[in-house]
């Protein structure tokens, strides 16, 4: 049975048992502009990435101003999550999990920073600043050059060291 047919069946069952076929149908149409304001999701294939760009040189300044206080100099030894280094340590007795050593997708950086960082003022960075600080964190991990231009095309194409290791424990029908 196709997924689509399955959904139809599932909806029919719900309608039959609980709704007797009658939904209030109170959803209101949403405009593309309203969705754009609310949609922060970036997919690994780059879907959802906005226009804009940045490189590690610009990103170093963004990092120093907005990130360093919590994440430390060059993404190490800060109060909060370490961002850089740890390569080759994951299977040792002292694993160091960082963006570079652990995160399987580079797109997650943009998605997360745009949603939640800086912690006290999320949403305050421009898209160019987010691309730049992502570039800087990737540069600290040796994954891009200092002048590599990071944008909606290049970010999804970066292969993270741990990306070959992921194993899905659940796969939807």
């Amino acid at each position: 049975m196709s997924m689509y047919r399955k959904l139809l069946v599932a909806v029919t069952i719900v309608a039959g048992n609980v709704f007797a076929g009658d939904s209030p149908n109170l959803g209101e149409a949403v405009t593309a502009a309203e969705i754009a304001v609310a949609d922060y999701t970036v997919l690994p294939n780059g879907d959802g990435l906005p226009t804009g760009s940045g490189n590690a040189k610009n990103g170093a300044a963004v990092y120093a101003k907005h990130c360093l206080a919590c994440h430390g100099d060059e993404g190490r030894d800060g109060l909060n999550d370490r961002l850089a280094g740890g390569h080759g340590t994951l299977l040792t007795d002292n694993p160091v999990r960082t963006v570079g050593s652990y995160w399987p997708y580079a797109t997650t950086l943009f998605d997360y920073v745009r949603r939640a960082m800086p912690y006290t003022t999320p949403g305050s960075l421009t898209n160019d600043e987010i691309y730049a600080v992502a570039a800087y964190i990737l540069f600290l991990n040796g994954l891009v050059a200092e002048d590599t231009n990071i944008n909606s095309e290049t970010l999804p194409s970066i292969k993270m060291p741990n990306s070959d290791k992921i194993v899905w424990q659940y796969r939807p029908e």
Binding site: D39, T41, L43, P44, R97, V99, W103, P104, Y105
Partner: peptide, 17 residues
């Protein structure tokens, strides 16, 4: 607040790192 229907997981920070 939002539910975005997609064809693949977003691999968010909380489901990967």
């Amino acid at each position: 607040h939002t539910i975005k229907v997609v064809d693949q997981p977003a691999m968010t920070k909380d489901e990967t790192s």
